[in-house]
Design a protein around this nucleic acid. Structure first.
Lengths: 223, 223
DNA sequence: AGCAGCTATTGAACTTGAGTCAATAGCTGG
DNA sequence: CCAGCTATTGACTCAAGTTCAATAGCTGCT
């Protein structure tokens, strides 16, 4: 262990993209932490968890790897903290939109959904990353899972004869697949719902989805 | 590079859990590959992607790390191949159940859903892993994302006055959240659907979900 | 039967990236 | 202006994925 340490921005810094917060060093703890979280929100939205190395994060923040570990005990923790911020913001945004007054419930619903969609539009990438439930999400895997959903939805669409270009109907079908997946997981976890009931719920929701999308259900009802 | 190689099961093998396929070595390519995929299905269902090391896989298969790399170019590829098998089986199972005859569509729907639920019941863990869209899925992150969903669903449930113990209603609400998430992603990706339309679809589906779950909508319709 | 060649299989070495730690530099109050 | 606290650093450790030349076990041919 010979000559070590050279904190601070002497000599040849600034050379490799470490340009953020140019004033440089020794921020107050809270500021640094906030800065890192904000940065994490950006970075994790743009890149996958494990494509983003600690070194890259540190470089982007203009600090050393060690310092990052001073603020977050591990890369995971850093990531989790980041996602937590995103989740809090999503909840806050929708809360603010719908909790305020005592307007008619349907109006509140409309406002809440609007706030939600605003969030999606604004933080597109981050939102998607959030829903992917994090870490990893190999593109190939996503494609596979997505392909499976498409196959299921497409099968039904074909059977019913949904028009290929009917965006609303296709979105509704995809959404229904989402409904089926989530309720399946929920059903599996809590064991308090009969399988029959669940199946009926799913079937009813498919009809509702098609109906809401304006699909002609004549064929379904018929033979 | 001095004295190397000692393929085969001489001496002290069998000692560390390398007991699978006891006959041992030099399987035909297809058999090995099939064996490894089947094993992967088990292992990845039980453990997270990155909690499962290549060494652990090799040990469980009773082969060397190198051989695994002979069959799959990387850990990722191995994982992807495994998920692909699962997806194929899911599609095949539902296909078989619903494609056969030309019975009434509603009956086919029922059969298809039954097949789906069978799959979920049988491969519970693997199914969940598949839907988590793979790699990673840190438990803390899952809890966070799940908590966010719960918060959203709970907010609505409270507003409407859903009974705390009403499993069907809660499942339906959770499912609706899934619907909202999936359609949001879809809306964001394909740009062919108006925001208004999407919001209306979501709202209609919430009512449908509550209705299907037998919740009294009197309050919603009223002031 | 025995040998030759093909290839499944191995073990060790290489590489990369996460996590650790003692040393140092920059504030801040006395 | 110095002393002490702490934000910050850079090199080191370690685990896990990946590579590769060497080897052993089949398989068919003579």
């Amino acid at each position: 262990m010979a000559s070590k340490g050279r904190p601070g921005r002497s000599a040849d810094d600034e050379r490799k993209g470490r340009s953020r917060t140019p004033e440089g060093r020794r921020l107050a703890v809270d500021e640094r932490r906030a800065q890192l979280l904000e940065l994490g929100l950006e970075l994790f939205a743009a890149t996958t968890y494990d494509e983003l190395s600690i070194d890259a994060i540190a470089r982007a923040a203009g600090i050393s790897k060690g310092l990052l570990y001073h603020y977050f005990p591990s890369k995971r923790d850093y990531y989790v903290a980041t996602v937590r911020v995103a989740a809090e913001r999503l909840l806050a945004a929708t809360e603010a939109a719908s909790a305020d007054l005592d307007a008619p419930p349907l109006v509140l619903l409309e406002r809440g959904l609007d706030a939600y969609l605003d969030f999606v539009e604004r933080h597109g990438q981050a939102y998607a990353a959030l829903l992917r439930s994090g870490i990893g999400s190999d593109p190939e895997i996503l494609e596979l899972v997505d392909g499976t959903r498409s196959a299921l939805a497409g099968r039904i669409a074909a059977r019913i004869g949904v028009d290929e270009g009917d965006a609303l109907a296709h979105t509704a079908l995809r959404g229904w697949i989402g409904f089926v997946e989530v309720t399946s997981l929920e059903w599996q976890r809590r064991r308090d719902l009969g399988r029959e009931r669940l199946r009926e719920l799913m079937a009813a929701m498919l009809l509702a989805a098609l109906l809401a999308a304006g699909v002609d259900l004549g064929e379904l009802a018929g033979a």
